[in-house]
Design a protein around this nucleic acid. Structure first.
Lengths: 148, 148
DNA sequence: CCGTGTGTACTAGTCAATGTGGTACACATG
DNA sequence: CATGTGTACCACATTGACTAGTACACACGG
């Protein structure tokens, strides 16, 4: 599956679902037009309440990542527009500043941080599963993926 | 002041205080040995409860950003060690993967994202000269070393 | 020793977000 | 109409953040 939930995580379940779908789209594991599981089906599979899944789908629809057809199903958007683009760009930038600060306190130098970002980009574009980090992030750490 | 709180933000107040202090340290607005306001004073100034400020100070002490002397005051650490370095590095990397995904959905190209990061770095280091960031790489984790 | 300023600890309570469980409704398709 | 889909409620429990108030512990200078 292209989605795995960590029940122990402090991140809300619905947020994990949102992130998981967006991640799968970025990795092209989900293509435009692909159908997502029904709300209740996915809820059963993840052993969470259907309302929780629905909240995730609602959020994904607000972000135009998916499209919903009542009575039929939910699908990955074909021509996604970008709502709240300005705010989201600003939020992204704020997060980046935040982690530059964190990097400073971890004594990570600027060039190391840039290298880390390049590694993250490769991780996404090569379709791996983001879960596995083997601890050596300073050079390109490529740990191989799961099964399908 | 080196600290401003947004009451409307979804980010908890105590977290904003933690981030604010760490940011000021990274920007060298606060130097090692500098004294922070008393818990109650800062609480009054920010119009929050003293317990909230204390929670922030506690967190900062856990991260060895500040040092606390009972009955005297709190001070920016002189020789900060790095607790939980490995976990924090992994958390940082996970966050970076999130950026890449978000950037994809914002149609931000890789080179743009790298440029954004460079800008964020300049925002932090602006004006100040940054001399001695030591060349400590992944392996070099400092060992704890105590007191004032 | 005492007063003052400091950090710390504890209890009680409010509020909002999250998640569950259940029920009911709306729409599309065959 | 039956079925599978998304949607909309409701009541409830749990958790984290925050407020409010009180009390204690320690350092320092009279």
């Amino acid at each position: 599956m292209w989605l795995r939930i960590e029940a122990r995580s402090s991140i809300p379940v619905y947020q994990q679902v949102v992130d998981g779908v967006k991640s799968a789209v970025a990795k092209r594991l989900l293509q435009p037009g692909d159908r997502l599981p029904a709300v209740r089906d996915l809820a059963t599979e993840l052993t969470v309440n259907h309302n929780t899944v629905q909240k995730a789908y609602q959020e994904l629809e607000r972000e135009h990542v998916i499209e919903v057809v009542r009575g039929k199903g939910t699908y990955i958007s074909r021509n996604p527009s970008i709502p709240n683009e300005r705010e989201r760009r600003e939020a992204l930038y704020k997060e980046m500043v935040r982690w530059v600060i964190e990097a400073h306190h971890l004594r990570i130098r600027d060039d190391e941080l840039l290298k880390l970002l390049r590694t993250a980009m490769q991780d996404i574009h090569q379709g791996g599963d983001e879960g596995a980090m083997n601890g050596d992030h300073c050079r390109g750490s490529r740990e191989l993926d799961e099964d399908v």
